[in-house]
C-alpha cells in the first residue's frame, strides 16, 4: 500500500474506525434481526461483513501489515459465494411459499 494513503488513513484515530465499523455492524445486525424482507436481510448481512472489512483495513493500516487486506479479499470472495447460495435459497423459498417474508418460515419448531 502506498505510504501516502496509509498516512491519510492514520489521520483519523483508530478508535473512530473501530466505532464506525461497530456502528455499521450494529446497523447490519439490527437489520438482520428486525427486517422481515429476506432480501434486505441479505443486504444487512453484507453490511456486517463490510463493516468488518473496514475495520480490517484500518487495522492493516495501523499495524502496517498487508495481510489483513488479503483477508479482506477473501472475505469479499466468501461473501459473494454466500450471497450466491443465499439468493438461490431465496428463489427456492419464493417458489415454495410465494413470499420473501422470513416470518413465513415457521413450520419447523418446538
Amino acid at each position: 500500500m502506498e505510504q501516502g494513503i496509509i498516512t491519510a488513513i492514520r489521520t483519523v484515530p483508530l478508535d473512530h474506525y473501530v466505532l464506525l465499523s461497530f456502528l455499521l455492524f450494529s446497523i447490519g445486525v439490527a437489520g438482520v434481526v428486525f427486517r422481515r424482507n429476506t432480501i434486505i436481510i441479505l443486504m444487512c448481512v453484507e453490511l456486517m461483513l463490510n463493516s468488518v472489512n473496514l475495520l480490517l483495513t484500518a487495522f492493516s493500516a495501523y499495524h502496517s501489515d498487508p495481510r489483513a487486506q488479503v483477508f479482506v479479499f477473501f472475505i469479499m470472495l466468501v461473501a459473494a459465494a454466500e450471497v450466491t447460495v443465499g439468493l438461490s435459497i431465496l428463489v427456492m423459498m419464493k417458489r415454495n411459499v410465494d413470499s420473501v417474508d422470513v416470518n413465513q418460515l415457521n413450520r419447523l419448531k418446538g
Binding site: V33, N103, L105, K109
Partner: peptide
C-alpha cells in the same frame, strides 16, 4: 423451554443476539 424454539427465523436471530 421448548417454546423458545418458536420456529420464527427472525425470532431465532433475535434470541441469538
Amino acid at each position: 423451554v421448548r417454546r423458545v424454539q418458536t420456529g420464527n427465523a427472525s425470532f431465532h436471530l433475535l434470541a441469538m443476539l
